[in-house]
């Protein structure tokens, strides 16, 4: 019996490890081409003048992601002009949660006047490449000769409910540091978010 439990635990921990695979800080990102809410395909390489990217995994339904919608728009408003545009990707499967459908993404993007692409990731291909585990989950990339290098992974800030008096804006700080040629002082953070709604079966 004990051995059985041990095997079960090993399987579980193996599974947990598999779940945390994906890009680490320092990894070079493989480009992708995903459909935007305007039906056009978007790839990182399309942004010829970009110095980097703020890739945000976010969605239609998660209360935490919703709480961050305006902050994501604000990030793009501030940093797209400085060469660090926001590229948002919905990692969720509409089969698992109907409100995550492409039509609902289009509706949300027009209702909230998203000033950044909001991309569909069918079959979670890009989500798995990045190793995104929740919404919102941010990857800040720096464009280099080697390719787009991951420089920050984690939360937008430490204040989801806008009630933290000691607010630290991780993504802003990371991009500001990159823009002056520095490495982000805080390269990864943890956060509570909604788990990804994976395709069933």
């Amino acid at each position: 019996m004990k051995r059985l439990i041990l095997v079960a635990f090993m399987l579980i921990s193996g599974f947990a490890f598999a779940q945390t695979e994906g890009y680490k800080v320092g990894d070079v990102v493989k480009d992708f081409s995903l459909k935007n809410v305007n039906n056009k395909m978007v790839a990182l390489a399309d942004y010829k003048d970009a110095k980097g990217y703020i890739v945000v995994f976010t969605c239609n339904t998660c209360p935490v992601a919703k709480a961050y919608q305006e902050r994501i728009s604000a990030l793009n408003a501030t940093y797209a002009a400085k060469g660090y545009p926001v590229v948002a990707i919905n990692p969720n499967d509409a089969g698992a949660v109907p409100d995550e459908s492409f039509q609902k993404m289009q509706a949300l993007a027009s209702e909230k006047k998203f000033n950044f692409p909001y991309l569909l990731d069918p079959d979670h291909v890009v989500t798995k490449q990045f190793g995104a585990t929740r919404t919102p989950h941010v990857f800040v990339l720096n464009k280099t000769d080697k390719g787009n290098v991951v420089e920050y992974i984690g939360a937008i800030d430490n204040d989801p409910e806008e009630a933290n008096s000691t607010k630290v804006e991780y993504v802003k700080n990371a991009v500001n540091e990159l823009s002056i040629g520095k490495k982000p002082a805080i390269a990864s953070t943890k956060a509570v978010g909604c788990g990804i709604k994976w395709k069933k079966g």
Partner: peptide
């Protein structure tokens, strides 16, 4: 208020999920 702090305090290995 600070999830960075409480996640670490509850368990160092916790991602927050």
């Amino acid at each position: 208020p600070d999830q960075q702090a409480y996640i670490e305090r509850i368990d160092k290995k916790w991602s927050g999920a």
